[in-house]
Design a protein around this nucleic acid. Structure first.
Lengths: 219, 219
DNA sequence: GGTATATCGATATGCATTTATCGATATACC
DNA sequence: GGTATATCGATAAATGCATATCGATATACC
């Protein structure tokens, strides 16, 4: 039963988790689905359904027990067992991600970074090692690393992707602004900044347009 | 008619655009929907439908004219008119984004950054100014900036969000791992790393689990 | 010029996700 | 203790999106 958490629900779980942790700090013992929905600007029913997929249930009139809910979500997100990851491409974005110490809270542990460029090799100010790329496969296999993060320029992203697959990586987090091809069983999640910008841009265009033709009832 | 581009389609447009630009460099004049689909691992029909939403159409037997398609997509993405943006939070991620010079290609122009911390003020190695946050409102109003990028820690993100709204910002790109509340007419696009990680994590858990119980036909 | 074929566009089907409706139940208050 | 109410959970309808099917059409080749 618990197997079937939809992708959409899965992606909302971290948002609930974040909100619930805030509540927890403020010593709120109970929380209703409606309250969560109002605060997060989501539908009340949607929240209830999402929570139903992971939790053992709430009580009428009082809602859910905050702490229990947090635990349930964390279990379902796999935050209890940390996944090791390697990062390829120690440019600006790569270094920024390396230095970000919040990933552990999400179950991700970057063990090392790789790059071709000799200049950046060595220890980063994050304390993480930046190694030559030819050492990647060996390290991944030894440490059984299963997650790869790509922060190289677009034109070398596919090559890096292939290397990661070669190294036994099962899931790839891609920040390069390009599409990647990999075998079926490899999950590729692209953080497509361009797609996000498309959304913002579209919103602005619509908004500015509707302001120009201030008809009020444009449709 | 062209009004109704679905969100999903909109988010795929930059991917097509990227691919088409590569083709264009290789002097390919024409391209079929099937070819795009195969290269990008998408459905042929999906591609055709997406393209139908933005383009004036292709010809049987030859497909679409590459250059025309690029233009059509760029128009629909608003890449022709650059949107100005401000960035708040000149930490590691903020600086990384400031230094990334690829945004202009997506129609985004970061005009300045803001931070509370005195240390980082001044000119960045990106050439962009990092200013004190109290100057934000004035600058946004003067330059009619409509996009705000939030790269501050989670606990100050909402405060920054409010300030941006105050400054006349219409669309917010949020990198803080928290949910933000703003008036209805403000678009908030959160780059939720935790959500992405949830996806990766889930994939690994499923994969490793199915390997443990190597039943082959687990369902 | 006629026929074959690749490719397009439109309509229809199916699936996933969201939203709505309704009855059930635990707490609160009289 | 009985009734009112907030809230939950389940079932049903609606929506949005992806996939399938089919006829139309422009090019290529005979």
């Amino acid at each position: 039963m618990k197997r079937s958490i939809s992708i959409q629900t899965l992606q909302r779980l971290p948002i609930y988790l974040n909100f619930l942790k805030e509540l927890s700090q403020n010593k709120r013992m109970n929380i209703s689905a409606k309250c969560i929905a109002d605060n997060l600007r989501l539908g009340e029913i949607q929240v209830r359904k999402d929570l139903a997929a992971v939790s053992s249930g709430g009580k009428p009139k009082v809602g859910y027990v905050t702490e229990d809910l947090i635990k349930d979500i964390e279990i379902n997100l796999g935050h209890n067992n940390l996944h090791d990851a390697v990062l390829v491409g120690a440019g600006k974005l790569g270094k920024a991600l390396l230095s970000y110490d919040g990933f552990k809270g999400y179950g991700l542990n970057i063990v090392a970074a790789f790059d071709v460029c000799g200049d950046v090799l060595g220890s980063n100010d994050s304390g993480k090692q930046i190694l030559a790329i030819d050492k990647m496969k060996d390290l991944c296999e030894r440490m059984k690393v299963r997650i790869g993060i790509i922060t190289v320029p677009a034109d070398s992203a596919q090559k890096v992707c292939d290397m990661l697959v070669e190294s036994g990586i099962l899931a790839i987090w891609n920040f390069a602004p390009t599409h990647l091809s990999a075998p079926e069983n490899i999950l590729i999640k692209s953080e497509n900044m361009a797609s996000s910008l498309a959304l913002l841009s579209m919103h602005l265009i619509k908004n500015i347009d509707s302001k120009k033709g201030e008809m009020d009832n444009e449709e």
